[in-house]
Amino acid sequence: MNRKQYLRGLRVGIPISLGYLAVSFTLGITAKNAGMTALQATLTSLLVNASAGQYAAFTMIAANSGYLEIAIMEAVTNARYILMSCSLSQKLPSTAKLWHRLVIGFNVNDEIFGMAIAEEGKLNPFYYFGMMTIAMPGWALGTFLGTSVGNILPPNIVSALSVGLYGMFLAVIIPAAKKSKIIMGVVAVSMAASFLLEWAPLTAAIPSGTRTILLTVVIASLAAVLFPVKEEAGCDA
């Protein structure tokens, strides 16, 4: 069963990996502009796996920021992964071992998280491992290529590459929304609230990562209170 789930994760992870390859290409260009070598940038992508966090770090490195400043910025930028990790911890079966949780915790990111949460019932850790196995090299390879040869591409082509992840998000959200009116409503409210906070005078100055965390906590809490999900007996089996 674990082998079957791992292979399924590999198949599901292929489009994620291709999307990462395109998007991290621009990340590699940012790393090169910050004075990093291809090896340094690629190693960062293998160890961090956080697009917004890496962009913020490379930008601050280019500005010669101090270690403490970078550490604080990374903590704020990547704080949303704490919420994702808490959600995944509830999604795993009670039989999941500590090393399963540690490996999953090493690579919690938006796209893989979305596919994991979309699973019906409990999450088999090996399904997640399969997605990690194929997606992580795609992110690192894209970073390497962007650092090595990114500056030879026209700027409009590089900009267009970043559209890929938006398509991936839609592919995760739409099927779940079609199955549940509650999820569709939550998605619609989230999009509207995000747009309003982006332009409202009192919240426009708040970093986007912080706004995302606030919206996630508030909307998810309201949805959990108003539309609780009943646990089915034997769901860990």
Score class of each variant (00 low, 15 high):
Tyr55Leu: 15
Thr59Pro: 06
Ile61Pro: 06
Ile61Asn: 08
Ile61Cys: 02
Ile61His: 10
Ala62Asp: 10
Ala62Gln: 13
Ala63Phe: 14
Ala63Gly: 14
Ala63Leu: 15
Gly66Gln: 05
Tyr67Leu: 14
Glu69Pro: 02
Glu69Tyr: 05
Glu69His: 06
Ala71Tyr: 05
Ala71Pro: 02
Ile72Tyr: 12
Met73Gly: 14
Glu74Tyr: 08
Thr77His: 03
Thr77Arg: 09
Asn78Ser: 15
Arg80Gly: 10
Arg80Trp: 09
Arg80Phe: 07
Arg80Cys: 10
Tyr81His: 15
Tyr81Cys: 08
Leu83His: 07
Leu83Asn: 06
Met84Asn: 09
Met84Lys: 06
Ser85Asp: 10
Ser85Leu: 08
Cys86Glu: 07
Ser87Ile: 12
Ser87Leu: 05
Leu88Gln: 08
Ser89Tyr: 11
Ser89Val: 08
Gln90Glu: 13
Gln90Met: 13
Gln90Ser: 11
Leu92Met: 03
Leu92Pro: 03
Pro93Tyr: 08
Ala96Asp: 00
Ala96Thr: 00
Trp99Tyr: 14
His100Ile: 02
Arg101Val: 06
Arg101Cys: 04
Leu102Asn: 02
Leu102Asp: 04
Val103Tyr: 05
Ile104Cys: 05
Gly105Tyr: 11
Phe106Arg: 05
Asn107Ile: 09
Asn107Gln: 10
Asn107Met: 04
Asn109Met: 11
Asp110Lys: 01
Asp110Val: 05
Asp110Cys: 05
Asp110Ser: 04
Glu111Lys: 00
Ile112Trp: 00
Met115Arg: 01
Ala116Asp: 09
Glu119Arg: 13
Glu119Ser: 12
Gly121Cys: 03
Leu123Met: 00
Asn124Tyr: 10
Asn124Ser: 14
Asn124Val: 06
Asn124Gly: 06
Pro125Gln: 05
Pro125Leu: 01
Phe126Pro: 02
Phe126His: 14
Phe126Thr: 15
Phe126Asn: 12
Tyr127Ile: 00
Tyr127Lys: 08
Tyr127Pro: 12
Tyr127Asn: 11
Tyr128Ile: 08
Tyr128Asp: 09
Tyr128Asn: 11
Phe129His: 07
Phe129Asp: 04
Phe129Met: 13
Gly130His: 08
Met131Leu: 07
Met132Thr: 12
Met132Glu: 07
Met132Leu: 11
Met132Ser: 12
Met132Gly: 08
Ile134Asp: 15
Met136Asn: 14
Met136Phe: 10
Pro137Lys: 09
Pro137His: 07
Gly138Asn: 04
Trp139Thr: 03
Ala140Cys: 06
Ala140Gly: 02
Ala140Trp: 03
Leu141Lys: 00
Gly142Lys: 01
Gly142Asp: 01
Thr143Glu: 00
Thr143Val: 01
Phe144Lys: 05
Phe144Ala: 08
Phe144His: 06
Leu145Ser: 04
Gly146Met: 02
Gly146Ala: 02
Thr147His: 00
Thr147Ser: 14
Thr147Gly: 03
Ser148Tyr: 10
Ser148Asp: 03
Val149Lys: 04
Asn151Ser: 15
Asn151Val: 12
Ile152Trp: 03
Leu153Thr: 00
Pro155Trp: 09
Asn156Asp: 14
